[in-house]
Design a binder for these strands. Structure first.
Length: 372
DNA sequence: AACGCGGGGAG
DNA sequence: CTCCCAGCGTT
């Protein structure tokens, strides 16, 4: 014997682990080939389509993205058309998806790709990573799924699946946990015959089977490799987060109608819903009385409502909104026809308010003489 | 390392 | 109602 027994034992164990790992990978990929959902961004692949899909899918459920992705691609079929588009129109197409900064990053990334890379999406994760809005996950997802690069991906699904396979109940937000997950994903993708398909399969499993609550272990193709299931702790992974207290903000929207038109303003360049349209809205830590709302309004807006009768007040979710009829002829602010706002980017709550006002408000027009 | 960003669905 | 979700950029 050339080697001491201890070394042989270790080598045997390592090869056994590797063999089990390839069985697992094969079972997962076979399941994915059989059960993969038919999603709009699967099928005809391109770097551009993947870039759009991945941007939309960040923090957003697949069902939400399905509705928007097709319309977005139809409006901006090529990366050049997206790069040449007006930001407001990009935001309008993004409307309802939330996290609007993603849309601006995507727009900026398209411009960079057109100007610096001849309109061709980079194929290396390291290069993709430099684009605005493209982080470690997104770069690796595009590089592996579209271009077949052997890059590991870790999103929330992967983190949960791997934690359960290994029965690790560490807090998912800890940097040590994240590092372990990336390391494990790297080992796995190194052994996968098709890196892109494996990455997609891992995420798909987390999305449809290995769900955060009530995982469908009876339908899981790799249940027999799952240590959490064996130990009966799959529902306790990941562990619940420590109480995160969120301070809430009350929005008071002031709808001012005149002659079938509504007064709108555009939000500032920074913060929530930046550069999107809304009716004038006051934000406060606590619910405000009507008088306080009026007092907080910018002077030009306040002038419009000060001497007019209060018309209507109701609440939609956490937004209280007030409807006034303005008789003043002031031309300050931007008046838009209530049915002519489809092309303006607005948050969902704001758009819903206008829809409700349009449906329920009595004729707020006064007379033709009011129209300027 | 912690926080901000925004929707929708579940409980 | 409240809680949950989970990538990227900023601070």
């Amino acid at each position: 014997m050339r080697y001491p027994c201890g070394t042989l034992v270790v080598e045997d164990r390592e090869s056994a682990v590797k063999e089990q790992q390839s069985v697992l990978i094969a079972a997962l990929c076979s399941w994915f080939a059989r059960e993969a959902r038919d999603l709009p961004w699967r099928g005809r692949r391109s770097g551009y389509r993947a870039l759009v899909a991945e941007a939309m899918l960040q923090q957003t459920q697949v069902s939400r993205v399905i509705e928007r992705y097709t319309a977005f691609i139809k409006r901006f079929p090529t990366i050049r058309q997206l790069a040449d588009a007006d930001e407001q129109e990009v935001l309008t197409m993004w409307q309802g998806l939330g996290y609007y900064r993603r849309a601006r990053h995507l727009h900026a990334a398209a411009k960079v790709i057109v100007s610096d890379y001849g309109g061709r999406v980079p194929r290396q994760a390291r290069t993709l990573r430099q684009l605005p809005g493209v982080g470690r996950y997104t770069a690796a997802a595009i590089a592996s799924i579209v271009y077949g690069r052997r890059e590991p991906v870790v999103d929330g699904n992967v983190q949960r699946v791997l934690a359960r396979w290994h029965a690790r109940d560490d807090p998912p937000q800890d940097s040590a946990t994240i590092a372990w997950t990336w390391s494990r994903a790297t080992e796995l993708v190194a052994a996968a015959p098709e890196p892109g398909a494996f990455n997609e399969a891992l995420m798909e499993l987390g999305a449809v089977v290995c769900t955060p609550k009530r995982p469908r272990c009876s339908e899981c193709p790799v249940a027999r490799h799952c240590n959490a299931l064996h130990q009966g702790c799959e529902t306790r992974i990941p562990p619940p987060k420590p109480t995160a207290k969120q301070r809430k903000v009350h929005h008071h929207a002031v709808v001012i109608m005149r002659a079938g038109k509504v007064l709108l303003e555009r939000r500032s360049d920074r913060g929530m819903w930046s550069r999107m349209w809304q009716v004038p809205t006051i934000e406060a830590r606590t619910p405000l009385r009507l008088t306080a709302v009026k007092r907080a309004l910018p002077a030009p807006v306040c002038d419009l409502v000060r001497n007019n009768a209060f018309d209507h007040q109701t609440t939609h979710r956490r937004i209280t909104f007030h409807v006034y009829t303005a008789t003043s002829r002031s031309r300050r602010g931007l008046w838009r026809r209530a049915d002519d706002i489809a092309d303006l980017p607005m948050s969902n709550p704001q758009r819903r308010i206008l829809a409700m006002v349009a449906m329920s408000a009595p004729r707020s027009d006064h007379s033709a003489s009011d129209v300027q």
